[in-house]
C-alpha cells in the first residue's frame, strides 16, 4: 500500500512550526521519528494533508541533569536514552525500559516525544513518565504549558495536547539516591508491545518503600496508576498489594489475553518488579 498524497514542510524553528500548525491545525500532523506515523500513512490509517517535520529542531534533542532533576528533549532518540550515562546514573528506570521499546532499528529513529505524543496504551515510555511523575512540556500558540504525566495521557492515542501544540520535552524531578525502580513486561516476542507491563518507582528507606508509584501499561486505554496496590506495597504487604490490583485495574480483553489473564500477569509482574528493587538494594 502507498501513502495517500500529502504536503510536507520542515520548519527551521519552533516558531515556524507553531505558525504552520496554527494555520493548518486540522489537516496537519507532526512528524518526529516517524516510526509509528510512517507505517500508519502507508497503511492509509492516517491521511493528513500536511506533515510538519520537526526533525530539524535540533535544540529539542538533549539530555540534561539538574540537582534533583533530569530533562530530556522531545526529539531525543530512543537510542540516545538507551546509551546515556546520565540516564543510567540518574534514572535507571528509563534505561531498563528503553531496551523493551521495539528493536534497534526503530530505536535509532524513534523519539521520546513521538512515543509520548502518540500515547499508545501498551507503550513503555508513557508508563515510565507516569511512574516517575514527570512533567511534560508543550509549546503552542498560547505559549508554553507544563502538564503532569497523570493528566497528559487521556485515552488510546489521546493526550492533553491541543490542536497546534507540540510536545517539546519532559522533566523528571525528585531524583535522588533514595530512589529505586523496577520494570517488567510480558510481550509475546522481544520488542513487541506489552501484553502487560509495569514501571515501578519508589523511595527506599532502611526499612520500607515509600512514595510507591506503580504504572501498568497494556491493561487499559492509557497507562494506569495502581494506587491501592502501591499503598499496600508501601505497607510491606505483597499479598495485599496483589489482591488490590483487582480494584486498581480493570484490564481489557483482546486476542492477546483475556482480562483475567492480564490481571493475573499484572500480579506476577508486581512481584517481579518489586523483587528487582530488592536486588538493586542488596
Amino acid at each position: 500500500m502507498k501513502s495517500a498524497a500529502f504536503d510536507y514542510v520542515r520548519p527551521g524553528t519552533l516558531e515556524q512550526a507553531l505558525q504552520i500548525l496554527s494555520e493548518r491545525a486540522e489537516g496537519a500532523r507532526v512528524l518526529a521519528g516517524g516510526q509509528s506515523l510512517a507505517p500508519a500513512l502507508n497503511l492509509r490509517l492516517a491521511a493528513p494533508e500536511l506533515l510538519v517535520d520537526i526533525g530539524g529542531l535540533a535544540q529539542f534533542r538533549y539530555i540534561e541533569e539538574g540537582a534533583d532533576a533530569l530533562r530530556i528533549g522531545a526529539l531525543t532518540r530512543h537510542v540516545d536514552v538507551e546509551r546515556s550515562e546520565i540516564v543510567a546514573r540518574r534514572c535507571p528506570l528509563l534505561s531498563r525500559a528503553i531496551a523493551h521499546v521495539a528493536h534497534p532499528a526503530i530505536r535509532n529513529r524513534g523519539t521520546l516525544g513521538g512515543s509520548l505524543a502518540l500515547a499508545d496504551p501498551a507503550a513503555e515510555l508513557p508508563a515510565c513518565m507516569l511512574a516517575l511523575d514527570a512533567v511534560i512540556h508543550v509549546a503552542g500558540p498560547g505559549g508554553e504549558r507544563r502538564i503532569a504525566a497523570r493528566d497528559f495521557f487521556q485515552g488510546v492515542f489521546e493526550t492533553a495536547l491541543r490542536p497546534g501544540e507540540v510536545l517539546t520535552g519532559v522533566e523528571i524531578g525528585g531524583l535522588g539516591p533514595d530512589r529505586t525502580y523496577g520494570f517488567a513486561e510480558l510481550s509475546r516476542r522481544r520488542g513487541d508491545f506489552a501484553i502487560v507491563g509495569l514501571a515501578l518507582a519508589a523511595r527506599r528507606s532502611s526499612t520500607a518503600l515509600s512514595d510507591v508509584r506503580l504504572a501498568f501499561f497494556g491493561v487499559a486505554d492509557r497507562p494506569v496508576l495502581a494506587r491501592a496496590a502501591a499503598s499496600a506495597l508501601g505497607a510491606g504487604d505483597m499479598s495485599a498489594a496483589r489482591a488490590a490490583l483487582a480494584t486498581d485495574l480493570k484490564p481489557v480483553s483482546d486476542a492477546q489475553a483475556s482480562s483475567a489473564m492480564r490481571l493475573h500477569l499484572a500480579g506476577v509482574l508486581l512481584e517481579r518488579a518489586f523483587n528487582e528493587t530488592l536486588e538493586a538494594s542488596a
Binding site: 497503511l43 509475546r188 516476542r189 522481544r190 520488542g191 513487541d192 508491545f193 486476542a255
Partner: peptide, 16 residues
Amino acid sequence: MLNANMADYLVPMASE
C-alpha cells in the same frame, strides 16, 4: 481476518 499485518501476526525473530 483480525491480524493481517506484521505487528499482530507474529513470526519468530532471532530473539525467540
